[in-house]
Design a protein around this nucleic acid. Structure first.
Lengths: 160, 160
DNA sequence: TCCAAAGTGTAGCCTTGGCTACAAATCGCT
DNA sequence: AGCGATTTGTAGCCAAGGCTACACTTTGGA
């Protein structure tokens, strides 16, 4: 399946790093950054679920799997599977046919997420992003906003 | 451009509450937002690879799988698998043991991604985020920045 | 020249997060 | 009370994106 005998038509004699005598340690930093972005992405779903469940409980009184699924735009089976994962993570409690509730940890997470969401949306609007786009983009961006950045956002908004 | 999953076109025929007279926050809107954030996430990796490959080609002359892997902080096997996917998507060309090169589409993508990255980092710094955090957070956030938001960022930076 | 090291590729495994299809439980209405 | 509709749960499938282990090429140095 691999090619028949690749010919050495490609002389690349020079070694890039030979002339890199000065500081080169750029890779670890970048790798770390990418890694962090990857892990942030991993918790994003959990955060969204926690926030939504809190929302449903606050407004409607109950958070049912189908409601969650519809709001998130996924099938109910997917929602149920994710709820199981939330349960494993200790963020919610749920008994069959009885709805979903947040644990204390889940509540705390939901609160943090919601606050962060608001700040991000506010900041986007403050720099001139239309509300519609601000809401849309914040949904994805917020999960990558570190505490440091969040604090800077708050400062900026207050000082404005 | 990148349509990873053949979306079976959500057969969400139901207009849930026909008799919900009072303001129920529209679920379709929220579902759409979450869905978009999800798909944005899907293309994020491809974007990162394209940008990195462009960077390596520009500075070192060649983009080898191990270099890519090291810079991204993943195993070389993972990098190779992803490169295969990039190939499937028509963003790069690569022959065994010969390095990776960008197609025209890949080049275009890399250019867009890089420009966006710069704007996002600039914006973050402009609102007071320390450089270190700005770089870190931009890495994750940029993939969720829509054209509309990007334009607003540029405007804000210019008008500052 | 030739052999070991470095780089590359393949195979298999895992988890996430989607989906559909089907089964079981609960609800709501007559 | 009973039955159909809705909701919930389960099972099985898929692709993406990780990993390790192993095999194969290329390259470079003795």
């Amino acid at each position: 399946m691999i090619s028949p005998r690749p010919q050495p038509d490609h002389p690349q004699p020079d070694h890039p790093e030979s002339d890199h005598n000065d500081a080169m340690p750029e890779e670890p930093t970048q790798a770390r950054r990418f890694g962090k972005a990857r892990t942030a992405q991993a918790s994003a779903l959990l955060e969204d679920y926690a926030e939504l469940i809190a929302d449903l409980l606050a407004s409607g009184g109950e958070a049912r799997p189908t409601d969650i699924a519809r709001r998130l735009g996924v099938s109910h089976a997917t929602a149920i599977k994710t709820i199981a994962r939330l349960k494993r993570e200790g963020l919610v409690t749920a008994r069959p046919y009885r709805g979903v509730f947040l644990t204390e940890a889940g509540e705390a997470l939901a609160g943090r997420v919601k606050a962060r969401h608001l700040v991000v949306v506010e900041l986007l609007r403050a720099v001139g992003v239309p509300s519609e786009a601000a809401e849309q983009d914040a949904e994805g961006m917020e999960h990558h906003v570190s505490d440091t950045t969040l604090a800077a956002f708050s400062r900026f908004l207050k000082a404005r």
